[in-house]
Amino acid sequence: MQKVIFQLETLTCPSCMAKIQTALQKTKGVLEAEVLFNSSRARVTFDEEQISSKDLIAVIEKLGFKVIGEK
């Protein structure tokens, strides 16, 4: 189990937050995903044997949101 926080480009619509959150939650290997609207961050707990943080970034970016940072 691993935890990661992605800094996304500024989120300006709450519906996009729901979108990213649901997409992450539906991704295999993700145990927990929460998108923080005001600080424009995504907090993800995942199983590193099933998925990598690179894959998670790909999911977010495919939805049309840039990932600026990771920690």
């Binding site: 619509c13 519906s15 996009c16 979108k19 649901t22 997409a23 539906k26 999911v59 495919k62 939805l63 049309g64």
Partner: peptide, 18 residues
């Protein structure tokens, strides 16, 4: 164009977006 693109991308994750 961006609206359609976003709609399509979300649909791939079976998401109904605005």
């Amino acid at each position: 164009i961006t609206i359609f693109k976003n709609a399509f991308n979300a649909l791939r994750y079976k998401l109904v977006s605005i």
